[in-house]
């Protein structure tokens, strides 16, 4: 009886999280991008992988990415409670406790890395482990709150998935894998700075030193243009190494040109209009990465089926 009463008392303070809350801890939207880029990295890599092994590898990468998302939310609960964008996350809204999120994240990290190592190879598993470490410790715990260059270096964590996919198939990391990494690495700053430009107030309130808050809007706009140009150039890397042909080169050129134009348009504006254009740039950057990787996949597919394009 006392046990029932005790349970009822505990329940009155917290009913515990719902399954959906734990799914939300995995940041499903970020996960979908990770799955997609890892999938492309795996398919364009030279070599064969059994479809089921490939599926399990992607699952491990997705769960590993989700685990790092949960650990990120565990550590960032204090600032998530301040920003409107993150206010409704499971921890700041009180649906999941911080300790539960920590345990959840650590367990999934261990399972995803261990399983990936067992089903593919330990290079891929090591890269996944490093990605989780990089995102949680280097980015979340250290850089995010201390430097306006946080997302430039932290962006590396998001750039690893295609490399992990590549390593899962080949057991190595080649120049092509490095180029795929560089594309996402250079894509991250303009993507997040566009967001930071129109969500500046939020980051300011949370005390996160994003570039617009620290160096000003003008400096951010300049940096966006610089990184966009570097990204557009790097986008041609797979053509130069011979991984892909014109079927990829043409979309890469068009997509890069549009990205550059939108970045320059953000640079030319100020005030409300600049924020509107930054919003457009942010939305476009997502499509850019998606279409670029689809083109990469299509080109490699054509080369494999028809010999050349």
């Amino acid at each position: 009886m006392a046990f029932v009463e005790h349970n009822a008392k505990t329940a009155s303070t917290s009913a515990g999280g719902r399954v959906e809350d734990y799914v939300a801890l995995l940041k499903p939207r970020v996960m979908s991008l990770v799955v997609f880029t890892a999938f492309v990295g795996m398919l364009v890599a030279p070599g064969d992988i059994h479809p089921f092994i490939g599926f399990v590898a992607i699952l491990c990468i997705a769960v590993g990415a989700g685990a790092s998302g949960a650990l990120n939310m565990w550590y960032d609960a204090d600032i998530d409670a301040i920003m409107s964008r993150t206010l409704n996350r499971p921890i700041p809204s009180g649906r999941v406790s911080r300790d539960d999120a920590l345990g959840f994240g650590l367990t999934l990290s261990a399972f995803s890395v261990g399983t990936l190592g067992l089903v593919t190879n330990w290079l891929a598993a090591g890269l996944l482990a490093f990605t989780i470490f990089f995102y949680v410790v280097i980015y979340t715990m250290w850089l995010k709150r201390s430097t306006p260059q946080n997302i430039v270096i932290g962006g590396a964590a998001g750039a690893f998935p295609p490399m992990i996919g590549w390593a899962a198939v080949t057991g190595t990391v080649s120049m092509d894998a490095l180029i795929l990494f560089m594309i996402i690495f250079l894509w991250t700053p303009p993507h997040f700075w566009a967001l930071a430009l129109y969500k500046k107030g939020d980051y300011e309130a949370a005390g996160i030193p994003m570039l617009p808050n620290v160096a000003g809007e003008r400096a951010t706009q300049n940096q966006i243009v610089i990184y966009t140009v570097l990204l557009t150039i790097t986008g041609f890397g797979p053509v130069l190494t011979g991984l892909v042909g014109w079927f990829y080169a043409i979309p890469a050129a068009v997509l890069g040109a549009i990205f550059s134009v939108l970045a320059v348009r953000v640079r030319m504006a100020s005030g409300v209009e600049m924020k509107r254009r930054a919003r457009v740039l942010f939305a476009y950057s997502l499509s850019y990465l998606f279409v670029l990787f689809v083109a990469l996949l299509a080109d490699v597919g054509l080369i494999r089926w028809f010999g050349t394009v």
Partner: peptide, 29 residues
């Protein structure tokens, strides 16, 4: 108390399904 039990039951089912999936994955691999 009912909400607590309902949520705990659902979490247990989810964990059970995840472990079951893991068994099948390891068997197939």
């Amino acid at each position: 108390a009912e909400i607590f039990q309902r949520r705990r039951r659902r979490r247990s089912i989810a964990i059970g399904l995840a472990l079951g999936a893991l068994v099948l994955i390891f068997y197939a691999v």
